[in-house]
Design a binder for these strands. Structure first.
Ligand SMILES: [Mn+2]
Ligand SMILES: [Mn+2]
Ligand SMILES: [Zn+2]
Ligand SMILES: [Zn+2]
Lengths: 141, 141
DNA sequence: ATCAAATTTGTAATCATTACAATTTTATAT
DNA sequence: ATATAAAATTGTAATGATTACAAATTTGAT
């Protein structure tokens, strides 16, 4: 089953000039909704693009973020994680297996309160931490 | 005007054995509600405790965090910030001046949704980013 | 006073991310 | 098509926050 995602147009829509590397990275994010780190993206693409540089991965992700084509998640204090899903949703990180899950959420009320305080809100991040259902049922350690 | 905060008892209540360094750090957090970094705490205490080591500051903050005596904030991808206020509230980071402000918030609804998905929630962090009222009125650059 | 445990300290290591200059690729002008 | 300039990519070195670790100091119990 082939992906119906048009990476080329997705980049153009965000004023990003497509290149082999940029298309590969945005496609990787489309196909891997696990909120990968820059290093994971690099490891996942190095076979496909043997000349790929880790610097390019970082530069490209920063460009995507600046152009609001992806989210940059700091739920983990060690690595920044990336998400092609820029819609309003929360994230849950399991303290046992480390996976980051999506959680449906609406954050309008908090944004409204921030506006009342004179803040102009550009980004909203709701991070939850705890134990996922798998790790809860069969705890590791 | 003297602080009415009993640092000694606060540590004991969280099963933390008080020491000169630990008392100084928890007092610093009580008096500085700016969500300081480990480095800022170190810089703010080095005159008062000239032998203080940065390693001790990190170790102590990690201990406080493990004992749930403070919050550990990852709103900034560069530095972890710390907060003695463990009550339910959100944070707003100004992308211009870098300050981190408190924002009142109730996150029960999202926690409920997470529970429905089988997640056990231990921590909740709501981070907003944008421009504070000062920076909004007189933009810098 | 003595000994062991806990805490603190200083230094070195780790490691994610960025800086930077060289190289390669792409686009534009002749 | 060729020359030239601009943009993108690459490799390596630097940065900087945090941690690892072992030595030194302090604390607490006998
Ligand atoms: Mn997501
Ligand atoms: Mn706070
Ligand atoms: Zn898990
Ligand atoms: Zn500001």
């Amino acid at each position: 089953m082939k992906s119906d995602f048009n990476a080329y147009n997705y980049l153009l829509q965000h004023d990003i000039k497509p290149s082999v590397q940029r298309l590969a990275i945005i496609n990787y994010l489309y196909e891997h909704r696990t909120h990968p780190t820059a290093d994971e993206i690099y490891a996942g693409l190095i076979d496909q693009i043997p000349t790929l540089s880790k610097t390019t991965v970082y530069n490209t992700l920063n460009l995507f973020y600046q152009q609001a084509a992806i989210l940059s998640l700091t739920i983990d204090d060690k690595n920044v994680r990336f998400d092609i899903d820029t819609s309003d949703h929360a994230h849950f990180k399991c303290l046992n297996c480390g996976k980051v899950f999506d959680v449906p959420a609406v954050l309008d009320s908090v944004t409204a309160i921030a506006l009342e305080h004179g803040f102009i809100v550009a980004e909203k991040h709701l991070y939850l931490k705890g134990y996922c259902s798998s790790c809860n049922e069969s705890p590791n350690k």
